[in-house]
Amino acid sequence: MASLTLKSGLRDMFLEGSRHVSELGGYATVSGSQAWVDALNLKHKELNDLLREVASQGARDITVRNVFGQRYIGTRLNTVSGCNVNLSIYGTAGNDLGAFLNGQRLTVYGNTQDGVGNTMNEGEIIVHGKAGDVAAMSMRGGKIFIRNNVGYRTAIHMKEYNDKVPVLVIGGTAQDFFGEYMAGGIVILLGLGLAEGKNHNANYVGTGMHGGVIFVRGNIEKSQLGKDVGIYTTDDRDMEIVRQYSGEFAQRFGLNTEEILQAQFRKILPLSKRPYGSIYAY
């Protein structure tokens, strides 16, 4: 009797109806180090199971087509030992693309949603489109290149440690709370699509920022900054960094580095390593 089996019951929206990877053979073709996966109608776990499976079989260049919002693409490849994969993703990648990524290279031909590179540790994400909110959240290492714009709270709580410095380069502009809580890392906001004389979109840039650096190309007003940061002119060493990563950005998207560098860059730095050091009574 159904009413006795489960009361309101528990439905697993992620896993319910997931097929075992052994039933998914039809969705993938592996040929040597190449593999092709058709993600149409695959649930997120099925897709990631399948990616894991083809990687285990030795595929190192994997093309995934028909991606429609499947989450965590690339995440579970961490658990395949010695795996370093080039993943080409066609479609709209789902949330948490490359969350906790640890050394893969993900290229998305299309837009991505929220949480790109969430707490990513190593590897590279290239997005030929835009990214949603909280891209590069708590990113700890590796590189992310976003061709177009990013949403709210990009690079929030990005970190660095010694020579492990994450890099995020954004071709377009960003929305509010850009670089919030940033504790390390290098973020470069290129503003390539900004209309002449138009400011970047973001307000409250760098609130709570206490480490790392944001380089901004294009107009940004002081009033757009959070109270914990200052904006400064760049020096030669800064520009070396900007040149290197803008160069990598340009190379990935077939752009001209010199053109990018022609415009003025400024940098946003935290005023203190300890923004909240003085609010307590000891």
Binding site: H157, K159, E160, Y161, K164, G208, G211, K273, R274
Partner: peptide, 13 residues
């Protein structure tokens, strides 16, 4: 252990 620079505040939002 936390992978943040020595001496900086470790802020948990």
């Amino acid at each position: 252990n936390r992978m943040i620079p020595e001496g900086t505040d470790a802020l948990s939002p």
